[in-house]
Computed example of a mutant assay.
Amino acid sequence: MTILVTGGDGYVGWPTALRIATRTDDRVLAVDNFARRDWVEEVGSTSAVPIGWMDERLAAAREAHDVHNLSFVQGDLVEKDFVDELLTVHEPDVIVHTAAQPSAPYSQINGERANYTQHNNMQATRNLLWGLEEHDLTDTHFIETTTTGVYGAPEFPIPEGGAVMENQGERDEVPFPAMAGSWYHLTKSHDAANLRLAQSQFDIPISDVRTAIVYGTETDETRADDRLKTRFDFDYYFGTVGHRFAAQAVAGYPVTVYGKGEQRKPFISLEDTVEGLAQLALTEPDERPDGDDGVTVYNQVTRAISIVEIAETIADVGDEFDLDVAVEHFENPRNEDETHKMEIENDRYMNVIGEQEQDFEGGVRDIFETLTRYTETIEAHEDRFLPGVLEDSED
C-alpha cells in the first residue's frame, strides 16, 4: 500500500507523514513544492524553529525512528502534468491532502493574493480528484484537511456534517452552507463542495476533516531529534493567535487582546491533529464510518477556547519560564461579536483519536519550551507581529 501526504513539508503535513511512517510498513510518500517557505519569506518573516530540508529530515527519521519507508517528491499540485505523473507512478491507496495556502490574512492582502490563494488551493484539489478518476484510482481514500472556518460563527451549535433546512413545513438535511469569512476559507468551502461532487460522480471514498486552529510545537516523533522539528510561524499573516501571543511573550511584549476577547474559537493541539489524520489514513475500508451521502465529515477540534483565556493561559505558563507577561486589552478594529460562545460537535472525530492527548496548557508549555531556545530569531522579526507590515517588507 502507498499513502501519499501532500503538503509534506508543512506544519501539519510533515509530522503527519512522519507519524504514519512509524505506524506502518507500507510506503509513505510526502509531496511538497516548498511554497510555504516562500510565502513566509515574502511577508518578511521566518519560522521561529529552524527547519531542515527534506533530505536532512529523512536522514533523521531513519536514525531516530528506524523509518525506512518514508520518501519525498518535490512538485506543484497545481500543475496537472505533475499530478498525472505522480498518480501514474505511485498509484496511492490513500491521499492525505494537507497542501494549501492556509492563511486568511495573506489571502486578504489584495486581489492578486486572493486570486492566487483560490487558484492554488482549489486547482490542486481538483487535479487530485480528477486524476483519481482518470487513472482508475477511485478506490483511493481521499482525506482532506478543510477548515472549521467554513462554518463561520453561527449562533447555534455547529453539527459534524450537514445542516437541516426547512421551507414551507418541509425539512431535509443538506450540506452546511458556506459561511466563510475570508478568501482563503472560501477555498475550503469550495473544496468541500467539490469533494462531495467527486464522491457523487466518481464514488471516491471521502473524509472531509474540518480542521480547527492548531497549536503546539511538538509531537511524540518530533521530540526525538531537532532535525525532525516542524515549522513554527509567529507573524501576523501565518502565525495563529496562540502562536503570536506566545511569541510576543517571549520577545517581552504584552499579549494584546482586541476588545473583551470573550469570543470562543475552535482549537486542537498539533499532537491530536496528527493522531487523527494518521488513524484515518491507516483505517481499513470496512472499518470506516458511513458518512452523509458517501462523504464523512469530521470536526477536527477538541475544544473551543476564548481569546482572553488563551492570553491568560500564556501569561500563567509564562511565569514558569521566568517571562513577565502582561495581558492588555485594546479597542477591537474588527467587526465581530466579542462574546460569541461557539459550540461545535466533535463526537465523530473524538472517536477517531480516543482520549484527548494534550490540553491547552500543556500545549502552551511545549511552545514555550521550544520558543525560548530561539528568542533571538523572534526578536529579530518582532515587527512581524502587527498587521500592515507586508508593504514594509517589500520596500
Rank of each mutant, 00 (worst) to 15 (best):
V174K: 05
E166P: 01
G363N: 06
T140E: 02
G149Y: 12
A224H: 04
T138V: 15
E320H: 00
I143R: 07
T219W: 11
R126Y: 09
G216L: 06
Y253T: 05
T6S: 13
V327L: 08
T273C: 14
R227H: 13
D395N: 07
R23P: 02
D293V: 00
N69R: 04
H135L: 01
N335M: 00
A17C: 07
R171F: 01
G162R: 11
G149T: 05
W183P: 00
F72Q: 07
K265S: 04
A61W: 06
V94Q: 09
Q74S: 06
H68C: 00
R365H: 07
E79I: 09
D322R: 12
E262N: 15
S103A: 12
Q74H: 07
D226Y: 03
T222A: 12
Q263H: 13
V28D: 08
L4I: 09
G261I: 13
E173I: 10
A315C: 10
T372D: 08
R36I: 15
N110K: 02
Q263M: 06
D25R: 13
I143Q: 00
S200K: 05
T22L: 05
Y374S: 12
K341Y: 05
D322T: 09
Y237R: 08
Q279G: 09
D319H: 03
T22D: 13
M122I: 11
Y106G: 04
